[in-house]
Design a protein around this nucleic acid. Structure first.
Lengths: 144, 144
DNA sequence: ATAATAAAGGATAATTTTGTCCTCTATTAA
DNA sequence: TTAATAGAGGACAAAATTATCCTTTATTAT
């Protein structure tokens, strides 16, 4: 479904978001240990996310990654996915055709449209605050 | 969503299925030209599909690939996807966790379940005959 | 039997994705 | 101003996916 980058990225963002509700910055080491991801690779992903503005970072002692509290209700899961995987997952043809649309559909076009709409809708309606709220229940986890 | 192998494989299977309704065998060259896929790579994919039994082949002149007519109503899209991409797309965690289930869910587990069920259902309810029927309408295409 | 056709299969190459390592820069406290 | 901490960024490496090439095997018609 998603690339490894996107999987790690989403897990990292959810972890950072959770900590940010308590105004806690988190270091790369803490993040990669908490979400069980390769550290250096995770660093690259976080670079993309800070460049895109969804995640903030500060260098030096007491530095780390965080997300501005006021942004938690506005950042959608789809924002993160778009940065890391583009939006071919929403728009691309299930059979990999370049031109596949209502007028020139592949034989599965109308069947895939529904599924993609579902996915798109789920990712666009869920904000970081909404997901973080769920994470207060301790049945949810981000590793293994 | 799917790997390139799976995209080419599905396109090839749909093309072969269509021709098979008219008892026509099709050569690799015809297939790869008709679905606009790399020929040698498509050959490898077809090897997997013949080994799995969903596609038949015969060597020599007048040979080629075909699907037994009586199998068209029983072969589901999910069968082809399973051969080429496995079924991690149905069972895998959206965030890439190894252990993610009802009891130990990732924070997005219950949201992803619905989407995966949708996809699974679509692929399992659509047989080759059903899709081939649609393909009689000439708005549908398999290339570009 | 021979030539032609077409898939099967092994070896290899190119590309993309995933992952690591090392140095540079910024920040903080002492 | 120095030492320690932590992200940024460039270069490189490993692995997986995608793709090609060439030889072998099977089948058919002549």
């Amino acid at each position: 479904m998603f690339s490894k980058s996107c999987e790690y990225g989403l897990r990292a963002v959810l972890f950072i978001a959770k900590q940010s509700t308590a105004d806690t910055k988190v270091s790369l080491t803490t993040i990669s240990e908490s979400i069980d991801s390769p550290q250096a690779f995770t660093a690259k992903i976080l670079q993309q996310l800070t460049k895109s503005g969804f995640v903030q970072s500060s260098k030096g002692p007491y530095g780390g990654f965080f997300i501005e509290k006021e942004n938690l209700p506005t950042i959608k899961l789809s924002d993160i996915v778009s940065v890391l995987d583009g939006d071919s997952i929403y728009t691309g043809c299930g059979l990999g055709l370049h031109q596949c649309n209502e007028k020139e559909p592949c034989p599965l076009h109308f069947k895939f449209v529904k599924i993609r709409e579902n996915l798109k809708n789920m990712l666009e309606t869920n904000t970081l605050s909404m997901v973080v709220k769920d994470m207060n229940s301790d049945i949810f986890h981000l590793k293994i």
